[in-house]
Design a binder for these strands. Structure first.
Ligand code: SF4
Ligand code: SF4
Lengths: 135, 135
DNA sequence: TTATATACGACTAATTTAGTCTTATTTATT
DNA sequence: AATAAATAAGACTAAATTAGTCGTATATAA
């Protein structure tokens, strides 16, 4: 319960790697997979998510790879999380994509409002921590 | 990801019910299950966890049930969570029962220390919220 | 033209969470 | 003493989520 996914951990590691190798060549998925000892295919997807979400820029083809778009100081952990996870909410009823919320308690739920507040506070933890702080 | 389990949500609901029905009779698992519209067996287990962890006292037999041991003001959400979940940590390597931590990255993990700090902050959110605040 | 890299979706396997079933025990009531 | 109502606890099943793999297409430097 309350556990970060491996995907998110890999995203933190990858972002960290990009931040620390930001001069000259572009970092590749393979390089990061080797360096962080994580599955290539998973990092690859994480990096693609970074590119789609404007956290990094990708360069295709040989000598290609990724580089960060902003300074580590200006990238917060919540940006990284949002790039790779669509459901990082504390309850089912707060998840964005479930347009038709499925929780049967929704009508009469007494704990929802307090949990929205909890969510806000947890969000804040990630908003307030920048990539620079985890280098 | 980062989602509270239904078990924890049910625990919050049950604790809430106990707090609001604290005069006279003891609340039963059935009563709470009906009132909160949650599966009887699950609330039953939650309440047993409350009793084991001294959050509530149980009375067996006919006319039995549960009552809170402390005022809602003196029960924090973290107490409730700890009573029903043994793994509420943000990463595998912080989980208490995994005596032999299984994460293969443990030796060279660069994100562990920052995540321990994140964990501390998230803990704080639950430590600082009391049952009274969610009534 | 080849080697190296990103892009992306489908698929499978593993793990975790949610829920059910069963049996034993305790105690008030009749 | 018998019965009914309740907690106690563990095994089991089902559902959902997460983790990881595979295959194929596309882009680009050399
Ligand atoms: S409505 Fe209540 S029970 Fe349902 S997901 Fe939201 S908080 Fe949890
Ligand atoms: S060691 Fe690192 S990768 Fe492994 S669980 Fe802990 S934080 Fe995550």
């Amino acid at each position: 319960m309350l556990k970060l996914s491996k995907k998110t951990e890999y995203a933190f590691m990858a972002a960290r790697h990009l931040a620390m190798n930001n001069s000259g060549h572009y970092s590749t998925a393979k390089e990061i997979a080797d360096n962080c000892q994580i599955p290539y295919q998973l990092v690859a997807k994480v990096l693609q998510n970074f590119a789609r979400n404007k956290i990094a820029t990708s360069f295709q083809g040989a000598k290609g790879g990724y580089k960060l778009n902003r300074l580590p100081d200006n990238i917060s952990l919540i940006d990284i999380i949002k790039a790779v996870e669509h459901n990082y909410q504390v309850t089912e009823c707060m998840q964005e994509d479930n347009s038709k919320s499925t929780c049967s308690h929704l009508d009469c739920c007494k704990i929802r409002d307090p949990l929205i507040e909890i969510q806000r506070k947890i969000d804040n933890v990630f908003v307030q921590t920048s990539l620079k702080q985890i280098l």
